[in-house]
């Protein structure tokens, strides 16, 4: 597990705070957590979470990118990449 990196990563924490209300089974969230397989969040709810992230960071994350993302870590990395590109 990449615990130290998670603690340092504000994006990771932001995403976790948005996911927590939908985390009905109280799964412990890590970079490896799979949004759909582990958390059973449906595909549309994932898109809605991403919309909040977009507004929070003032970036646009294409649906095409989101559909390739499985884990929280992949989402964090995608946001970092887009933040860099769009800033």
């Amino acid at each position: 597990m990449s615990g130290i990196q998670e603690d340092d990563d504000l994006v990771f924490h932001k995403i976790c705070s948005l996911i927590e209300p939908l985390n009905e089974k109280s799964v412990k969230l890590s970079r490896e957590t799979d949004l759909i397989a582990d958390l059973e969040i449906d595909s549309v709810s994932v898109l809605d979470i991403v919309m909040d992230i977009e507004d929070n960071y003032d970036i646009s994350i294409p649906v095409n990118t989101i559909s390739e993302i499985k884990t929280i870590g992949e989402l964090v990395d995608a946001i970092h990449a887009i933040k860099k590109e769009q800033s």
């Binding site: 970036i59 646009s60 994350i61 649906v63 095409n64």
Partner: peptide
């Protein structure tokens, strides 16, 4: 590339158009 904007929200649309 496909970008969603908030439902029935022209402001949200405008933000995303401006970012392109």
């Amino acid at each position: 590339e496909t970008i969603r904007f908030r439902h029935n929200d022209p402001e949200s649309l405008e933000k995303r158009l401006s970012r392109l």
